[in-house]
Amino acid sequence: MDIFRSVRTVTGASGTGYVDWSAVADAAKDGTAPGELTLTDAEREGYATDVRDARDRLRRLGGVEFDLPETVEIQNRHHWIDANVDTFRRVMAPMEAKGPEVLLPDVSRVVNTGTCTLLLAFLGRNVLGQYDPLLLAEADPADREHCLYFVHPNIVSVADDLDVSRPRFRRWIAFHEVSHAAEFGAAPWLSTHLETRLERGIDGLVAGDLDREAFRELDTAMTAVEGYAELLMDRAFDDDYADLRAKLDARRQGGGPVARLARRLLGLGLKRRQYERGAAFFEAVADARGLTGASAVWDRPENLPTDAELDAPERWLARVDGA
């Protein structure tokens, strides 16, 4: 890790865009130790077993048909940063293509490059696992090769910090990420649904407007995504995990001012609210109709709950049952 070189790379940002993405990738990695990725045979087999077991249990208990992504990678932090620079670039592309001229573009580019570097470096040091549906990629959603990543150095480090078993913690992360694969596999339309709302929201920002309805619909859909994953994990994971969740939440509330600022910028508090609100909705639905009944949410876009229905699951049940 070389902080000085990272800062030098950011301040040397060049090009014609709002962000120098090559500099972002280099600077984020310069400021982040890659972490150890030498796995024992038992650790490598452990990841494979956890992912297969999660797939099999989620298929059986959730009543959803899906396949694992073709790409399942055990990464270090630098691998994860490289994989996600493109995600940041895709989100920013509409702004760079349509955005207005800015005063002092060279200065603005350095600031933007530094901001993206800090966020990617922070995430690279903290992300444990990721299911990546490659939103906003150029390929048609049906042709995209979704990916599943596990950031091994972070999983090891956090498990040790929390004083929990590494294999148990790793398995819990695997079940959570495979739960997301189950959702997108069961709902081929979901990627397009999320993308259209995200694109509308970004287009509005570029035009100097805030499309609140687009962001509200995006938040509602993501709340369903996170809540259903929590439900599947709760029913499918072969161990109680309340202690893991409590310890991890407590850890995420800590950290210094930079970490707290990064969490606010990334909306991680919002994501936790999505977990809790979505989980409460699906727990009520599953209690009334079982896991199979809850999975009806992925049958078609119209079955997604509205914002109001998230807090009144009986209204969603009445609407879907009567459809």
Score class of each variant (00 low, 15 high):
R144W: 03
L261F: 11
L261M: 14
E183C: 07
G17E: 15
E195V: 01
E65A: 02
A27R: 12
I173Q: 02
S22G: 15
D106R: 10
D50S: 14
E145Q: 05
D243K: 01
V24Y: 11
R277P: 00
Y275G: 07
A214H: 11
E226R: 08
A308N: 04
R273C: 00
A242C: 04
M222K: 14
D143H: 00
R235F: 04
A174I: 09
V51H: 08
E213G: 00
E276M: 10
L194S: 08
R59S: 07
H180N: 03
D86I: 04
G99I: 03
A288R: 13
R44K: 14
A137P: 01
I202D: 12
M92D: 10
E276W: 02
M95R: 12
L310N: 10
P313R: 09
G31K: 08
E138G: 00
G185M: 02
F169Q: 01
A28E: 11
G322I: 04
R44D: 14
V51I: 15
R216W: 00
N112M: 09
L118A: 13
R59Y: 00
F281D: 05
F184P: 06
L148R: 04
D56M: 05
G124A: 01
T117E: 01
D238E: 12
V102F: 11
F4Y: 06
I173D: 02
V85Q: 13
T16H: 09
E226A: 07
N303S: 08
R212L: 13
P301R: 02
S6K: 03
V297A: 12
G255I: 08
T220N: 04
E195N: 07
K271M: 15
A174V: 07
D41L: 13
V51K: 09
D86M: 00
D160I: 05
T306C: 08
E309G: 09
E45L: 15
R273F: 10
D41C: 07
R235A: 13
F169I: 10
D219T: 15
Y241A: 06
A33D: 15
D321L: 04
G31P: 05
E101G: 08
R125E: 15
L268N: 06
A48Q: 14
W298L: 11
D240M: 06
E73C: 10
L218C: 04
I81H: 03
D161V: 15
V164Q: 08
G208R: 08
V111Q: 14
S295M: 03
D106S: 09
A294E: 03
T306A: 01
A159E: 06
T192F: 04
L317N: 04
A308V: 11
L205F: 06
V85W: 11
L104N: 15
W316C: 10
R44A: 14
E36I: 03
P34M: 11
V24R: 09
D203C: 10
A318D: 12
Q130A: 05
D307P: 04
A284L: 02
Y18I: 08
Y131S: 03
A139I: 00
E199Y: 05
K271D: 15
R90N: 11
D243W: 02
D219N: 13
I173R: 03
K98A: 12
E283G: 03
R171N: 05
E65M: 00
V72P: 02
G35K: 12
S179K: 03
T223I: 09
V164W: 08
G99Q: 00
H193F: 07
I3S: 02
A284K: 07
P305S: 12
R245V: 15
M92E: 14
N154S: 06
A214P: 13
V158E: 05
